[in-house]
Structure formats: C-alpha cells, structure tokens
Design a protein around this nucleic acid. Structure first.
Lengths: 255, 255
DNA sequence: GAGTGGTCTAGACCACGAT
DNA sequence: TCGTGGTCTAGACCACTCT
C-alpha cells in the first residue's frame, strides 16, 4: 500500500493518533503527529528534547517526510527548534511585537485593577474626520462611546470611540457591554491590527476636570484606527494622564 | 542514481541552476529552485501566477518534494501564496508592524529633509539609570551623544543616546558619524528590536531654548532601548516638539 | 477531463555532533 | 561509531478548480 492511504489499514499502528482526531474533521497524519508532539512538549522548559524524527516515524508508522512536515509547522510557529546533528528541542520563547490589547487587558497585564465608567453611549452622525477614518461617508450612523477609565481607583484616561453602526447591528439595544474588545470578539470583529498616532498636549478644561488635573497639565493624546481584515472597525481618541501612563511599544523582528 | 547526488551528473539538466550558484557556497537544489522562482516573480503584480510545481519539476529535473521545499520557503516569507486546485501566485504585500527606523529614515519616509546637529559627543561614566538600561555596571564607560534634530529646517527633537563603549571600540576616534544606525549597521550591531516608552511632559528651560519653544509647552518624551541579538546596543531619551511630531505605530498580525 | 496543490510513501546519502 | 537533522528521489492518490 504505497500511498494515499488515510486512517484505514494503518490504524492499528496509530494508537496515539486516534486520541487527537478532530471529532468532525479529517485525520491528516501530519496533523496527528504535530498535535501529539505539541501536547508532549507543552509546558516543558526551553531546551528540553522533543522526540527524534525517526522515533516518531516508528511510533506512528509514517514516512519521515510526514514527520518532518509536522515538525516544520511547530518550528515555524516557534515552539521547536532544530539543531543539526543533535536533535529537536523546545525553543526559547520568541519575542513578539506589542500585541493589540484592550485597556482592560493592558492594565491587568501591568498588575492593576481596571475600571470603566460610561459617560455617553449613543448613535450619532459621523463628522468629516471620523467618517474619513472609518472609511464611511459623512453623516453615516456611528456609535459614539465615551468612557472614563480608572486603574487601581485612579483616573487614567478619557476615551471617545467611534464604531461603524452598519457593522454592529443591535449594538445599542442590549445592555452596555463591559468590554468593547470582548463585544467585538463575540461578533468576530475584534481588531487584529491597529494604527496608533501618539502625541502630547495640554489638558482642556473638560479633560482636566474629568481626569482630576490642574489646568495646563501635559497629557498624552492617542488616536487609534483598529482594523480587522482590511475593514476599519474602530476609531478612537484617548486623553491620558501623563503622570500615570506611558505608552510602551516593542517593535522589530524576533532576533 | 536515487539520492544524495549533488551538482554532479545532474548538472546537464540544471542549466538554470548554474546561474544562481552561490560563488563559494554549496549548491542545494531547493535553493536553486527557490532563487529561480524569486527572480522570476520579482516585481510582478500580486495575483500573477508562479510556475506550477510540476513545471518546475520537469524544468529542473528534481523531485516534486524538492520543488515544494523551495516554494514553502517563499510562501513562508510572504512572497507567494498557494491556492489549492488553482496554482501558486504572487501574494499581496503583507502588512508589517512598524519597522525599526532611524530619525533620518523616518523623516525621509515622511517626505521631509532631516538634519542633525551634534551638541555633544564624549565618553562618560554610566549613571545608575543608564547602566541598568544598558545592562552594564554603574561607572562603566559609555558614549554619550546629544543631537538636535531638524526636519525641513524646523527643530524637531533633542536626543541623548548612550552606547556601551565596550561594544563600539574606536567609536570616538574617527570622524563624527553622520548616522548612528548606519554606523551600527556597519559594525553588524544595528538594533532589530526596540522597546519604546512614550510619555508627555512640559519642556524644561533648556529643552524649550533648544527647540525654540515657549516655556510650559507640552512635549513628547520617548525613551528607547535598542537591542540586537539579546544585547542592549542603544539607550536613548528624546524630547520632541508635540506640535510638529507624533509617534506613529502599527501593531498586530498581518490579517 | 486536465491541471493544480495537499498529502504520503519507503527508502537513500550527507554533514555534523556526541561518545 | 552511532544518532541526528538536511537533503533528495520517483513515484502515488486525493480534493479541488477550471473549461
């Protein structure tokens, strides 16, 4: 049986594979090997050895190219690294560029307790700037959500976010969402790409009052366009207390 | 001749390969195929078809797995994309997170003419903060370079950069470099990873004078750690005119 | 039906590292 | 010397798309 055989006569030798069969999905051998290895090395320290290719060949009864295809995927996603002449090992964690986080997630990651107070949530007509940023027409319906954000009980920022109403049917009907990004994630629209512009300025009277600042204090201003699959989902402007908040950004390759 | 044969009897069928042989390097077949295809599709519009796998097989006289290995590499680097049942095509350009750019490169990319004036360039002993950021000991020798930056003739920022002297022998001997990142690149030390912290504040008297600002003006403050291969190469603090400069950052996956 | 990429086989020789 | 990953062969069947 030279080729093309899938999960048929070979099954007796594939006892480990049956456990990782996707319930309703296909049972590709390289996927089975991949998930077996993934489970096997999950949580191991970097440098811990993975099974050798030939060991997996005999364990699964597959060809070596199939095993290599499985390991290639794990190497590509940064879980394993190959060392010629020595073996395959758990790779050290890769450095990643700053991920797209919500205010809640960002504060939690910094060990602070976030809080959010809705100051306004209503339907509006898009102004020129918001329309251009959202790639819609001036006057189109947008959801405007204004929130005052706290961390560990201290005011951090005031954020005005604008959303394309067409993409979010019923957004204003239900209860006020506790998290914008969670709400968008539930609709499969959480931004995976953001374009931020960060500047500095002086707090306006309104901003100073909301943030509890003296007039004339320096603040950080952040504008964001959040996209999902080429679609602009979110446009926002934030004013942040510069004495309590800095934007941290990691950029570059993984070297 | 079933296997392991490299650039020997097979050469007659590999007329296209000889042109891409690395002068002093090995001549791996999958590399030859990869570079042939890379050259072939260079500059083509996204969606343009690449040669089919079987066409490359017959053209190079290699096995299909070898061709797939070559194409896999090009797919992984985002140059090609496969469409099952249709073929292999030039992929649309991938969106990339903001690259690590020098001031010069950043201004040029914005269509402005950059200029840089050295205010100080000398050896110093690292203070506590700089030492910690550079992962060296307090009192170790550091190069301190202070520059006033202009774009289109207007003052933009004042930057203080600190470099680990041990990594840059002779840095202060030659003429003043025209570009820090070019100089580092020449030594194989240009940062490929940066960690920025961006905040806001009010210009000090000194900063206001250098930047031509009234006292009490809001400015952007940026701190950077630049790394190459886990080594901290550069630590810097910049003060930027907020009326002329915003930090732009793109983040996220490539969807 | 012809062509494409996706998967898979059952071997092989090589360079390299550890013993 | 033995085991490892790196490379390579000469086929095969599959699901899919396009005509």
């Amino acid at each position: 049986m030279p080729n093309g055989v899938r999960g048929l006569l070979v099954l007796p030798t594939l006892t480990h594979v049956e456990n990782v069969l996707t319930p309703g999905g296909r049972a590709l051998k390289h996927e089975a090997v991949r998930e077996y290895v993934r489970d096997l090395v999950a949580g191991r320290h970097p440098g811990a050895p993975a099974p050798s290719e030939r060991e997996l060949v005999s364990r699964f009864g597959v060809a070596r190219m199939t095993v290599r295809q499985a390991l290639d995927a794990l190497v590509a996603e940064g879980l394993l690294e190959r060392v010629p002449g020595r073996g395959t090992f758990v790779a050290p964690p890769r450095r990643t560029a700053t991920p797209v986080l919500s205010f809640r997630e960002e504060m939690t990651a910094r060990g602070m307790v976030p809080e959010s107070q809705t100051l306004a949530l209503r339907l509006e007509q898009a102004g020129a700037g918001v329309a251009r940023a959202l790639s819609i027409s001036e006057g189109d319906a947008v959801v405007h959500w204004r929130r005052l954000r706290h961390a560990d009980g201290a005011a951090m920022s005031v954020e005005d976010v604008y959303l394309n109403e067409v993409l979010l049917p019923g957004f204003l009907q239900g209860p006020v969402p506790s998290s914008l990004y969670d709400e968008l994630a539930g609709r499969g629209l959480r931004p995976t790409w953001v374009e931020d512009a960060i500047g500095a300025g002086l707090a306006s009277d309104d901003e100073a009052r909301l943030l509890g600042l003296p007039v004339g204090t320096a603040v950080l201003r952040k504008q964001r366009r959040g996209l999902w699959q080429e679609k602009v989902i979110e446009v926002s402007r934030s004013v942040c207390r510069a004495d309590r908040y800095m934007v941290r950004v990691n950029l570059g390759g993984s070297d």
